[in-house]
């Protein structure tokens, strides 16, 4: 079975995911102001911004973990609602910071849980599992380990396998590398980028690290206080900041690099 699904290489001309005037308010704070946004097929979009800017809320709205107060979300031509959510969720893979692996299931059972629930044939499950283990470069013996017995990096690999098991159209990642130490993180960034390129799936990734955003993104969406401030490439953000905040946000992370260089000089 090919890694790249036939669906993914078809050239879509319309967005896979569209937000129309979506807003979300928590008691006492506005998490997302009325927002329009669309995600093009095969592209990697990175949501970035300071803590509390609404980037995670936006991702959680897409997977239906929080319900929008206003506006609509369409996925693959279907409106996201309580009725369509179970089916649409199977078209999306979701990875969170700590992996969210179920501790009572070993890695393999975590990955195959949903396929088994859907009644996939044993052979099909085994083939897909093998394929994904090769993709994320997870040793076979790790599959029989429980999450508590795996390293942080291995847990994220397993989590990615779980998200990809049903070959979803869209991959949603909420700070997937945020809890890893810098060396592992660096290594996984490279691998993840290769995987994204190879799968050519629609990816939405949340991070607060501008360098990571630049590495992954076709499009960066910079957010602040529940609204989109600027949308574009890393070059756009650096060279044509939409407002002074964008400049400060980019500058702050560039400054830390300059500080390292100054110490070394």
């Amino acid at each position: 079975m090919p890694i790249i699904s036939p669906r993914a290489i078809v050239l879509y001309t319309s967005p896979v995911l569209t937000l129309n005037g979506v807003s979300k308010t928590y008691p006492g704070s506005v998490a997302l102001q009325s927002t329009d946004l669309s995600f093009m097929p095969g592209q990697t979009t990175v949501l970035i911004g300071p803590s509390g800017c609404g980037k995670s809320t936006l991702l959680r709205l897409l997977i239906g973990l929080v319900e929008a107060d206003g506006g609509t979300i369409d996925m693959d031509g279907r409106r996201l609602s309580a009725g369509t959510l179970p089916a649409l969720r199977r078209l999306m893979g979701y990875v969170i910071q700590e992996g969210g692996l179920f501790p009572h299931l070993n890695a393999e059972d975590n990955v195959t849980l949903m396929a088994r629930y859907l009644g996939w044939a044993r052979g099909r499950i085994a083939a897909r599992l093998e394929e994904l283990a090769a993709l994320v470069r997870l040793p076979a013996d790790s599959l029989r380990r429980f999450p508590g017995e795996l390293s942080g990096g291995q847990r994220q690999r397993v989590s990615l396998m779980r998200a990809l098991m049903l070959d979803p159209q869209v991959l949603l990642l909420d700070e997937p590398l945020g809890a890893l130490d810098p060396m592992i993180r660096h290594e996984l960034q490279r691998e993840l980028k290769a995987i994204f390129r190879r799968l050519a799936k629609t990816v939405v990734l949340v991070t607060h690290d501008i360098a990571e955003a630049g590495l992954f993104a076709n499009v960066i969406v910079l957010m602040r206080e529940g609204r989109v401030v600027q949308q574009g490439s890393l070059r756009d953000l650096v060279e044509r900041p939409a407002d002074p905040f964008v400049g400060r946000f980019v500058q702050a992370q560039a400054d830390s690099w300059r500080a390292i260089r100054d110490v070394l000089a």
């Binding site: 239906g64 973990l65 969720r89 969210g100 692996l101 179920f102 849980l113 629930y117 779980r162």
Partner: peptide
């Protein structure tokens, strides 16, 4: 919460979540 949300995000309905995830945990 992260585990309960992961189970929801997978697309498991309530009954299956209780049986496969919540009650075993």
């Amino acid at each position: 919460v992260s585990l309960r949300e992961s189970a929801r995000a997978l697309g498991l309905p309530l009954g299956a979540r209780l049986r496969l995830i919540d009650v075993p945990l």
